[in-house]
Amino acid sequence: MYEQIVIAGFGGQGVLFAGKILAYMGMDTGKELSWLPSYGPEMRGGTCNCSVIIADTQIGSPVIQRPDALIVMNKPSLEKFVDAVKPGGVIVLDSSLIDTKVERDDVTVVYIPAMQIAESAGAGTLGNMVMAGAYMKAREDMYNIEDLYRSVREHTPAKRAGLAEKNIELLKAGYEYKQC
């Protein structure tokens, strides 16, 4: 396994955090991993992305040139990364925020209204968790979703345990979402 994931969207959507929980899961399951954020003068509102690599072997470049998976939460980021995704790769796309379709037939695309799902669960800021859950479903041959739940619980401070459960609820919503 050498899974290169790019997560992209606007600053404030929880792009970095979504990457972080995947990174924790990688660490807790004994994989090699790296987490690299884009950083710059632009923060809230600007585009933002992070590169996460989870692998069985030593990780070379932490910079991802051709992702195996793209988790994308705004249109500019889709335009930026869509062509870079490897043939056979997976794109998880928030269809409540991006109104276009992916014009590639060599990748698997999951359209999920993540933002809407999060809002109807009363957690409008947790669209990132819905997206991460949908990614886990798309890669269910690679991971066990229970590992992710465990890592989220383990790395959330005890006094914020409620938040961990809310995150898990939204991860689950993403994981169990049926695409029509």
């Binding site: 972080k20 660490m27 790296s34 987490w35 690299l36 990780i59 932490p62 910079v63």
Partner: peptide, 10 residues
């Protein structure tokens, strides 16, 4: 470099 400073690894 900036990358090494900003990136997270175990």
């Amino acid at each position: 470099d900036g990358m090494l400073g900003q990136m997270m690894e175990p």
